[in-house]
């Protein structure tokens, strides 16, 4: 049986019986086995699971970065599955933002230019009020003219967050956003992500393997062996850790 969680009409992203199979024959790997999940608008959801559980694959499929073998994925009103390159590009421009573990800023551009890059790619002007809000929230006003190399890791990741927020996407996907940061910088970034959800109604889906990071989320979805096996609402680091420990013995989780 597949776990079906969070049935709500207000879904920002939705996976419906998603299968993902890599390779064929003996080299076949099933990364996702019929995952169905909804991610509500205006909430901060973490996806957790041990290595190889398929959590990153699920996120890539949700974001339209990877195709699904079976099932459908949609973001807002848009069905992602079956979109061509043009459709996917439009989707990434209008509805999706990304935050990466490696920050992925362009080294040649200043912080400000990096933040505005998605808008300039799409040929749009930033909304000045929202831009100011974002800059102030991430606290980078005095660093805007610096290049990434002149910024600390935490500052770089805040630039990346600002970049994701500034185009007000339907949903932001964050891939281990604190994986490369020390715990203080990590806490700053996570706090900032949670605030953007609470204060500005942003939807965020974050993949992580760090229980402390997951505790910042409103809800945690657990994956193991390509299936959703559990979820926690209003998690704490302890409850997350407990759940993670039980994942080794899936039978207990099933209850």
């Amino acid at each position: 049986m597949t776990a079906t969680v969070g049935q709500q009409a207000q879904a920002a992203a939705r996976a419906n019986d998603v299968w993902k199979v890599y390779g064929s024959g003996e080299a076949q790997v099933i990364a996702l086995r019929g995952v169905s999940a909804e991610f509500e608008r205006g909430r901060f959801t973490a996806i957790m699971g041990p290595s190889g559980s398929g959590k990153s694959t699920l996120m890539h499929c949700l974001a339209g970065l990877d195709s699904v073998t079976r099932g459908t994925v949609s973001i807002g009103e848009t069905t992602v599955t079956g979109l061509g390159d043009g459709g996917l590009t439009k989707l990434r421009r209008d509805k999706v933002g990304f935050i990466f573990q490696q920050f992925n800023l362009l080294p040649t551009l200043t912080a400000k230019e990096n933040i505005l890059l998605p808008l300039s790619i799409a040929g749009r002007k930033p909304d000045p009020a929202w831009y100011d809000t974002v800059i102030d929230t991430v606290g980078l006003r005095d660093r805007l003219d610096h290049r990434p190399a002149q910024l600390s890791g935490g500052q770089q990741q805040r630039v990346a967050c600002a970049r994701a927020l500034v185009s007000r996407p339907e949903v932001i996907f964050a891939d281990e956003p604190t994986g490369n940061l020390d715990s203080r910088s990590g806490a700053e970034v996570l706090g900032f992500l949670r605030n953007s959800v609470r204060e500005h109604g942003q939807t965020i889906v974050m993949v992580t393997h760090d229980p402390t990071a997951a505790a910042y989320a409103d809800r945690v979805v657990f994956l193991a062996d390509g299936q959703i096996v559990s979820e926690l609402i209003e998690p704490t680091a302890d409850t997350v850790l407990d759940t993670m420990k039980k994942l080794d013995t899936p039978a207990e989780v099933g209850n």
Partner: peptide
């Protein structure tokens, strides 16, 4: 590669 992939991820089209 990584830089160009990033451009694609944040909305650049293949043509761009």
């Amino acid at each position: 590669t990584r830089e160009l992939a990033l451009m694609r991820a944040i909305g650049a089209s293949g043509r761009q």
